[in-house]
């Protein structure tokens, strides 16, 4: 059993740590751009400028961090999983596992899914902080919005339920962008060419399923 635990741990490290950099870079720019765009769209004197901070926080938490990160990871992690497992299929490594009496799908795929479902909410939390931090930097280094207004805005009317909603999405999306590409890779047949195709299919399908799931979850949780 310890061999399965080791697999899970390895996958958590490789799926989590390996994506941290890209998540942080994208989130930083994302938060900065949301702040600038919100500011650019509010030029009425009747709308207080702390709205900019408020809007940055809300769109980050509700949508950008969980969904955009899931789409990015569907591309990065999804293609990686599909090609890794597909290659194991065509080089007979999966057959080798079966011969040793190992259930190859639960040995190879399950740790990836579990690791990602556990790790992805944490990545999304980090993304939220960094994104809101990106907005903060705009407040600090430009005169689009003052730091005090921005900080007031990001604290305004905070509802923990929104975070719960966002992290539930993160977990569901993680399940999608690991299981769909893994399935495609696992049933890839034949050659390296097929592995490439399986990887593309995995990314495209998981992206679409994520968007549909996003709609459904939002309909269920927020209305």
């Amino acid at each position: 059993m310890s061999i399965y635990r080791k697999r899970l741990f390895d996958e958590m490290v490789s799926l989590g740590l390996a994506s941290l950099g890209i998540i942080m870079v994208i989130s930083l720019f994302m938060g900065a751009v949301i702040t600038i765009q919100t500011a650019a769209n509010i030029d009425s004197a009747f709308i207080p400028s702390y709205t900019i901070g408020f809007t940055t926080r809300q769109s980050t938490i509700l949508e950008f961090s969980p969904t955009i990160m899931a789409l990015i990871l569907a591309g990065k992690v999804g293609s990686n999983i599909a090609s890794e497992i597909g290659l194991m299929r065509v080089t007979e490594q999966i057959d080798a596992l079966e011969i040793m009496g190992v259930n190859s799908s639960s040995f190879l795929i399950l740790p990836k899914i579990i690791a990602s479902v556990i790790i992805n909410p944490f990545l999304v939390i980090i993304s939220m902080f960094v994104s809101i931090g990106g907005g903060y930097m705009i407040a600090m280094f430009t005169d689009i919005v003052s730091v005090s207004d921005y900080v007031y805005g990001i604290q305004l009317d905070f509802r923990p339920y929104h975070v719960v909603y966002a992290l539930s999405k993160a977990a569901v999306f993680a399940f999608i962008f690991t299981s769909v590409p893994a399935y495609q890779g696992y049933f890839a047949a034949g050659s390296a060419l097929e592995v490439g195709k399986a990887s593309t299919r995995g990314v495209v399908q998981s992206s679409i399923i994520i968007l549909v799931a996003n709609y459904l979850i939002t309909q269920l949780f927020l209305i």
Partner: peptide
Amino acid sequence: FLFQGSALFDFMTVEENIRFPLDM
């Protein structure tokens, strides 16, 4: 079983590859 293409597990070292069936 020795496969035609060896089918060693890419993510394991030589030693781990050989130990794997022993573990299993």
